[in-house]
Amino acid sequence: MNVNISTYCTVSNHLVKVNGTEYFEGAPDEPNFLKALYQKLEMSYPKFFKMDDLSKLGVLGVELLKLHNPEISNYSDDEIGLVFQTSKGCISSDLSHQEKVNKKSPSPSIFVYTLANIVIGEISIKNKWFGESILFIAEENDTSSTINYLKSLILTNKSKCCILGIIDAYDNKTELKMALITKQELGIALNEQNLKAIFEK
């Protein structure tokens, strides 16, 4: 059995692709692209609007994977591991919180998002997933640690499959690369080169 890349999706600024094929493109001047994608996905999840952009992006990514691979729901609630990496993490929320701190009036709903792993919490809550999860800090193109740990989760049977997420949302940057990684005979083996190749499609 190999550890292989299954369904994958990318969000690069306003362009959304699933398995390399365009799914949605937000207008370049769309100020609320994430909301537009939420509407395109016909979601009804009021909590979405309380999230920071990092969490919104992560939650939307998982919906994209589910839409194109309904088999994800065949896994039981703790068989799916969430292995994410981010470069700038929650710097947007950090800056918002710091502004509030400078005014001596911190906001709990901003502060809670100053932990980048909240995106994993939001995904877990939305999908009722109780499995393994972890957030690494790494440059977008440095996926070695994330891949190594993800493989160990599958090889040790701690997770049956994993969702790999490479995520960043700050300033005007909205970048997501997400893939379902499963154990199967055939498919594209999970390694740095293959990941790079599929995500550049």
Binding site: P46, S105, S107, P108, S109, V112
Partner: peptide, 17 residues
């Protein structure tokens, strides 16, 4: 409105500000 515990704390901030 299905508010939660963070919302409750945020309402405290609202009252003060």
């Amino acid at each position: 409105l299905a508010l939660d515990s963070i919302d409750a704390l945020e309402l405290i901030v609202l009252l003060e500000q």
